[in-house]
Design a protein around this nucleic acid. Structure first.
Length: 693
DNA sequence: GAGTTTGAAACT
DNA sequence: CAGTTTCAAACTC
């Protein structure tokens, strides 16, 4: 709350990019007037970083509780926008800042939107603030409410409204300013970034974001303005009038909603979007109507919503397999996620990328369910085909449960566990995991989370590079990804999908209590110990191999980066990274679960990666990452032997002697970190390999 | 499609 | 925290 004030001040009247703005005389002047420092640039930076790396994990909290939190990406957006304006209104400072005249229609329009948003969101999130301030343009409370809210576009600008004019104007102006200055520019960036990020999160997510992207492309402004989440229900069900708006605004809504819906709040519906690469959501909406009627209506956005947290195993597996896209999981992503998931520092896809993905969709059906809805129209009779395809592909990103007794309100239910509502394809009995029972679902989720905060977190944690590896030779390379909790297989030898590790396409780890592990993706004991023992041998052998792979990864990463201008963590991690990186999870100290999820894969791991791979930074093109790294990099890592090593011997194959394994790196990084001198080795390799590439 | 096996989730 | 039960997916036939 403290900082937010600063922004409004500095940002007043800024329709221009902050950098220019700050430089401008006007800006200076304003800055002088205001006691408050302009922090905007900083804030934005923080925002990103926070978004990408540190934001608290939506995954962990219940949708409701953390709804605002869930979208890290938006979170900044929200915090800045909302809080600032609100607070700004209060202080005298704000007055100085405020520009008396409302100028253009755009602003007006924007204002209107914002009004709605503000009222809506604020009411939910910052009710006190708004209400406490008598001057606040809050539509519900302020005298001018009606005018503003309903007729805002025309009335407000004129200032005819009268009674509230002065204060009200200020308030509005500020809001506008905020919007103009902060939101718009930021939004633009954020949007682009976020979009990309979100998209990449998971195959599934990407689809969801298409909607967002489309809208964004149409108008960023709307997006910014559109941050309205809570409204939808109203719009949908209650206000036919809004219905029209619905069509227009769904996108606008997306920003926020998606954000939190994406994760888990979004229990709304999963894969829905994925399928619609080419299709309009609208169409889909129609199709799905039957399924999610209650909410669906409001859910145009919901459809866009990415599956929440979940999609863990499947998502991961899919991502690795399906997506050529560089998907980084928080996973979730989200989940996701989540996507998570999820939420947002996920790798990004540009629209083009998305398009590609969508194109791929035909070839690689990602989600059955949505397809069921979507595709049939596109490709009559495609459902079976797709399903078949998906099966062949071994994917089942879209969950379909068959619950008989759990009412789909327990983790037994894949849908529920994945953070999505059950839909038609499900064969569940007495299902409560539907929009109709949202309250119940949320309550249950909350309860479960209270018991186990990670319950809805992706089960498999994977880093970007891991994915790539998986594609290449997952079997050979120890999976970077690991099951968060490890399996407990007794009879399946971790060779069947009974094993969550196997199912997730990851190797077993120390965390596993499995017996007779033969996990094709990596045995519990084998990889580590054996590797450690035969480290040298392996090094030589694998060095070349990995080097090649690294090279490949770099190329890929480069492409990815290009696609994702924002640099999201998308870039596949260097091959060895994951080894070290993942461990952090295991060692709870390292990465808060939150990051975990938020960062869908890459993001979540970023820190560690950065730490571990500081050297990588050199090679890697990701500047942004570097920044983040700096901020987020744990002291331990910074001071860790690895860091030293790197500095010391850039090229040396084996910089770190036994030390790595035994000392800090070992404890911090985890088992793998220990054994793997390889990691160090690989690090040096990067820089030299492709300086330009 | 029915029945069995399996291991996670939930419960005690 | 360990043991047991419940549950639904995965698997087999």
């Amino acid at each position: 709350m403290d900082k937010p004030q600063k922004n409004p001040t500095s940002q007043i009247g800024t329709s221009t990019p902050k950098s220019k703005f700050e430089d401008s005389p006007v800006f200076n002047y304003i800055s002088n007037l205001s006691p408050i420092e302009s922090v905007k640039s900083i804030s934005s930076a923080q925002t990103f970083s926070s978004l990408s790396f540190t934001s608290p994990p939506p995954v962990f909290t219940s949708p409701h509780v953390n709804s605002h939190r869930e979208s890290r990406f938006f979170r900044c957006h929200n915090s800045i926008d909302r809080t600032k304006p609100l607070e700004a209104l209060d202080g005298s400072v704000s007055k100085e800042v405020v520009v008396p005249v409302i100028e253009d229609l755009n602003k007006e329009a924007t204002l209107e939107d914002e009004e709605e948003e503000t009222s809506v969101e604020t009411s939910s999130e910052l009710p006190q603030i708004l209400k406490s301030d008598s001057q606040t343009p809050d539509r519900s409370d302020s005298p001018c409410n009606e005018d503003v809210t309903m007729e805002a576009p025309s009335d407000i600008p004129r200032g005819d409204s009268g009674s509230c004019s002065e204060d009200f104007k200020m308030g509005l102006q500020k809001m506008l300013d905020v919007r103009e200055g902060n939101d718009t520019p930021d939004c633009g960036r954020l949007i682009s970034d976020a979009t990309e990020l979100l998209v990449f999160r998971s195959p599934n997510d990407s689809e969801a974001f298409r909607c967002l992207v489309d809208k964004i492309s149409s108008s960023e402004r709307r997006f910014c303005a559109g941050v309205k989440s809570t409204k939808r229900p109203d719009i949908t069900e209650d206000n036919p009038a809004n219905g029209s708006r619905n069509e227009n605004e769904p996108l606008a809504l997306l920003p926020n909603e998606p954000v939190f819906n994406l994760h888990r709040g979004g229990m709304r519906r999963r894969c829905l979007d994925f399928e619609m690469p080419g299709k309009r959501k609208k169409d889909i909406a129609d199709d799905q109507q039957s399924v999610c009627d209650n909410k669906a209506a409001g859910e145009s956005s919901s459809r866009c919503v990415v599956p929440g947290i979940g999609l863990h195993l499947n998502a991961v597996a899919l991502s690795s397999r399906d997506t050529n896209i560089n998907v980084i999981h928080d996973y979730s992503i989200s989940g996701e996620i989540q996507k998570s998931f999820s939420d947002s520092t996920t790798p990004i896809h540009s629209q083009e990328t998305m398009q590609e993905i969508s194109d791929q969709a035909e070839n690689e059906p990602v989600e059955e369910v949505p397809k069921a809805f979507v595709f049939p129209e596109l490709n009559p009779g495609s459902l079976k085909k797709k399903k078949r395809v998906s099966e062949q592909a071994g994917e089942d990103s879209c969950k379909r449960c068959n619950c008989k007794k759990s009412k789909c309100l327990k983790l037994y239910c894949e849908c529920f566990a994945a953070g999505v509502y059950c839909i038609e394809p499900c064969s569940c009995i007495d299902c409560f995991n539907k929009p109709i029972h949202e309250d119940t679902v949320l309550a249950t989720r909350k309860q479960i989370e209270s018991r186990n905060p990670l319950a809805f977190a992706p089960k498999v944690i994977r880093s970007a590079d891991s994915i790539m590896e998986a594609g290449d030779d997952a079997s050979k390379t120890p999976a970077s990804a690991r099951h968060k909790r490890g399996c407990n297989c007794k009879k399946s030898n971790c060779l069947k999908k009974y094993c969550e590790c196997y199912q997730g396409g990851v190797g077993c780890s120390i965390n596993c209590r499995c017996e007779g592990c033969k996990n094709a993706f990596g045995r519990k004991d084998g990889s580590l110990l054996v590797i450690m023992e035969s480290k040298q041998e392996e090094d030589q052998e694998t060095y070349e191999k990995r080097t090649a792979k690294i090279q490949h990864n770099i190329d890929v990463s480069k492409e990815v980066e290009q696609n994702a201008s924002s640099d999201q963590p998308l870039t596949p991690l260097p091959p060895y990274r994951h080894l070290v990186v993942h461990q952090p999870f295991l060692s709870k100290n390292r990465l808060p679960p939150t990051q975990f999820f938020l960062g869908t894969g890459s993001s979540s791991f970023r820190k560690p990666d950065s730490d571990l791979t500081q050297s990588h930074n050199e090679k890697r093109p990701c500047e942004l990452v570097t920044e983040d790294k700096t901020e987020t990099m744990p002291d331990i890592l910074l001071n860790s032997p690895i860091a030293n090593i790197k500095a010391i011997s850039p090229n040396s194959k084996r910089v770190s002697p036994p030390q790595l394994g035994s000392s800090e790196s070992g404890s911090n990084l985890g088992r793998r970190g220990n054994g793997r001198k390889l990691i160090l080795r690989s690090i040096p390799a990067f820089p030299s390999l492709n300086p330009n590439q």
